[in-house]
Design a protein around this nucleic acid. Structure first.
Length: 262
DNA sequence: TCAGTTGTTTATAT
DNA sequence: AATATAAACAACTG
């Protein structure tokens, strides 16, 4: 699940339930999910401190706790759940932050994401690695500038977290389909009208997805037909094409998304 | 049984 | 130096 819209939903969920809560202790049914320290040290760093308003950059959730910051990355299957003390666990609750009024659980069937502890802004930057501007707050001109300076393919550029933070496979396909651009096109070759279309599609996809807390799966979205056996373009009805582009499964409409270049 | 998967990292190649 | 690609990670689904 977790791309920018999902992580933004987790940020709001964290803000609604855990922000302002004093941490009492940390428990880790899967301690290896805590990537850069031990569960004991994480517990010592957080105990007695209150979670503050969380921030998000791309797919990272950054939760300050009166000095230290907890970084959460959700991999492909992570999510958050706030629960009453002692209410039944699910098998994939990997890390649990026990607070005064309840507990925040990091649920993550596949252990691809993780939890990190940072004590300074520079430690945060080391952990996340270089990140481009967040996709939700990207101006048309900034997008144009980034793409102009980029060699290589369009989808690859959109998904590169160092270039733009937050776009994953579903959002990339959805945006390119909405903008009628071929994912394999050359990023730097877009003309002004195409950058306009791409930027408008990005804004629209992110806004609508953030509203829903995920990339919508109804039939008017590409993502809504993604799992069909023989998916058809929601816009023109043409059978959709499956390909591997930028190393990821890609769904596109050969009619709407004509190839302008390779 | 086997392929596929919304994430990133690493190694290797271009 | 940038990009591209494949494999690996992990565990579930169809």
């Amino acid at each position: 699940m977790p791309e920018l819209p999902d992580v933004e939903a987790f940020r709001r969920y964290f803000a609604a339930h855990a922000a302002g809560e004093r941490v009492e202790r940390v428990e880790a049914p899967a301690p290896e999910i805590i990537r850069n320290t031990t569960v004991q040290a994480l517990g010592r760093a957080l105990a007695g401190r209150r979670f503050e308003e969380p921030r998000r950059h791309g797919k990272w959730l950054l939760a300050g706790a009166e000095e230290p910051t907890v970084l959460l990355h959700f991999g492909m299957t992570g999510s958050l759940a706030w629960a009453d003390h002692g209410s039944p666990r699910t098998p994939h609750d990997r890390v649990v932050f026990h607070c005064e009024d309840g507990e925040l659980r990091l649920h993550m069937p596949r252990k691809l994401g993780g939890v990190w502890l940072a004590r300074t802004p520079s430690e945060i930057a080391e952990i996340t690695g270089p990140l481009g501007p967040d996709a939700a707050a990207l101006s048309r001109e900034e997008l144009a500038r980034l793409l102009r300076a980029r060699r290589g393919g369009l989808k690859s550029a959109l998904m590169d977290q160092e270039l733009i933070a937050g776009i994953g496979n579903l959002v990339a396909d959805e945006v390119l389909w909405r903008a009628c651009l071929h994912p394999g096109g050359v990023a730097a070759d877009l003309d002004g009208a195409e950058v306009d279309a791409l930027h408008g599609a990005l804004r629209g996809v992110i806004e609508d997805s953030v509203d829903q807390g995920r990339v919508p799966r109804d039939g008017s979205w590409l993502t809504g037909v993604r799992d069909h056996d023989e998916p058809a373009c929601p816009r023109c009805g043409t059978p959709l094409t499956r390909a591997t582009i930028a190393g990821r499964s890609t769904l596109l409409c050969s009619e709407c998304q004509r190839r302008t270049s390779t």
